[in-house]
Design a binder for these strands. Structure first.
Lengths: 169, 169
DNA sequence: GGAGAATAGTCGGAGCTAAAACTATCTACT
DNA sequence: AGTAGATAGTTTTAGCTCCGACTATTCTCC
């Protein structure tokens, strides 16, 4: 799942993000792929990503960056390494992402006195504000997913996803 | 979902692919993230990807490339555009991927007489052979996922993933 | 207290990904 | 037939991701 993450003019969606057509392909033999969880996990993830990007079209920030903001907002003072683990991406990936967020004035990075190797991340007021706006989009998006999954299966579904993540670790 | 896909010496895994530590992070407040399907979908997908890469460590081909081989093998004569839709990636992404597979001698690309714009993709004998080897790995991997999900929920889980993919399209 | 091991973060290299612009070809419609 | 529009693939551009190597700092333990 990778999505362009235009760094252009901060809060303004510049490119069109309508999302491409993703009709279920007919007449193709998927073979064993059709029954494999991993394959469908991937397709579902891509679709969800795309849908979120649509939902948050007016805000120029990818789902990944959004998760970053949320984690920092909820855990002020968190270090980059902890953040990278919680976020599920490599610490080296965070370096450019965080300097971008800093450049946009959304986060602060202070050196920690007691351990001068690590940083302390926190949101600026602008960061909090953007986080709030994004949270609205994300909530709407997740309600969309909820409607598809159905309230009866939702909890179980979520639990299974979580189980996959933790037990494969 | 992105995984390095070393093009080095075809069938030999060159780099180490042990997969990094992915312990569930404790002491981090995930906020609303904790309850959102999209976020956990992403984490589960990353974990599954990583696990597959581990499983197929001795074969130098990413899950994405594997799905490509499978789709071509199952649908000889398929065009790149159809393949890209079935595979869930952009047609422009396929251009370098397919020329790599061709370079490795795993697929053939013939021009179609009746429509000289499109290609007809097919596996070579080496492609079939590698596909068979990968299928063994993938089956093992999916059994691993099955064990985590549990046989009781598997069908429902798969159905929900499929539903997400189709209804978000 | 100092040498070696562990840890935080950065950098460079290689690969994946998608969107948009472009070329070549085909189709439809006048 | 001829032109306008659709379609197959490629290229270009820009961004993400990882890994492994590197620097700076801290910890461990003799």
């Amino acid at each position: 799942m990778v999505q362009p993450d235009e760094t252009a003019s901060a809060l303004v969606a510049s490119r069109s993000r309508r999302g491409r057509k993703r009709e279920p392909v007919t007449g193709v033999d998927y073979g064993p792929l059709a029954g494999w969880l991993g394959f469908h996990l991937r397709l579902a993830q891509i679709a969800s990503f795309q849908a979120f990007a649509n939902e948050a079209q007016e805000i120029d920030l990818s789902p990944g960056r959004f998760a970053l903001l949320m984690l920092i907002g909820r855990n002020p003072g968190i270090s980059q390494t902890t953040l990278s683990r919680a976020h599920g991406s490599d610490k080296s990936t965070l370096t450019p992402a965080l300097s971008d967020l800093k450049r946009r004035g959304l986060i602060t990075r202070g050196r920690l006195k007691s351990d001068r190797r690590s940083y302390q991340l926190a949101l600026t007021p602008a960061g909090h504000q953007l986080l709030a706006r994004l949270t609205v989009c994300a909530t709407r998006h997740d309600r969309h997913l909820d409607r598809i999954i159905g309230s009866r299966d939702r909890a179980r579904f979520l639990q299974l996803l979580r189980k996959l993540h933790t037990e494969l670790g």
